[in-house]
Simulated assay, not measured.
Amino acid sequence: MNKVLKLDESIYELVSRHPEVTGIMVGLGFHDIAKPGMLQTAGRFMTLSKGMKLKRIELETVRLAFQQHGFEIIE
């Protein structure tokens, strides 16, 4: 069974449920998420979809990276 992530969920919620999300996101170029305190502040209102727009990362790229780790992204 795949673990499901929603694009409109906050990064904080995603990482709270699945701590391994942090490593996957850093690998995709979301380096700020690893900075101390960033998850507790920006992570509370930043969503996966907002972050992708901000970093100009394609949904397909993100979807594939998460699929390799057993996640499914739903919109």
Rank of each mutant, 00 (worst) to 15 (best):
N2E: 13
K3L: 10
K3I: 07
K3W: 10
K3Q: 13
K6L: 14
L7W: 00
L7H: 02
D8K: 04
D8W: 01
D8A: 04
D8P: 02
E9M: 10
S10R: 00
I11P: 07
Y12T: 05
Y12I: 04
Y12D: 10
Y12V: 06
E13T: 14
E13R: 05
L14G: 05
L14M: 09
S16K: 13
S16H: 07
S16R: 08
R17C: 12
E20D: 15
E20M: 12
E20G: 13
E20L: 12
V21F: 09
V21S: 11
T22G: 14
T22R: 14
T22K: 15
G23N: 14
G23Y: 13
G23Q: 15
I24Q: 11
M25K: 01
V26P: 03
L28Q: 02
L28I: 00
G29D: 00
G29C: 00
F30S: 00
H31R: 13
D32M: 12
D32A: 09
I33R: 01
A34Q: 15
K35T: 15
K35N: 14
P36D: 15
P36F: 05
G37I: 08
G37Y: 07
L39E: 01
L39M: 01
L39T: 01
L39P: 00
L39G: 01
Q40S: 14
Q40E: 15
T41R: 14
A42C: 12
A42H: 11
A42Q: 11
R44I: 09
F45Y: 12
M46A: 08
T47M: 01
T47S: 05
L48Q: 03
L48G: 03
S49E: 05
K50F: 10
K50G: 11
K50T: 11
K50S: 13
G51Y: 01
G51T: 02
G51W: 00
M52I: 00
K53C: 04
K53G: 06
L54H: 09
R56A: 07
I57F: 00
L59P: 03
L59T: 03
E60S: 09
E60V: 09
E60C: 06
T61S: 06
T61L: 03
T61I: 05
T61E: 03
V62M: 09
V62Y: 02
V62F: 04
V62H: 06
R63T: 06
R63G: 02
R63C: 06
R63F: 02
L64C: 12
L64W: 08
L64I: 10
L64T: 12
A65D: 06
F66R: 06
F66A: 07
Q67P: 08
H69E: 12
H69D: 10
H69I: 07
H69W: 15
G70E: 09
G70C: 07
F71N: 05
I73H: 05
I74S: 10
I74Y: 05
I74C: 13
I74M: 12
E75R: 10
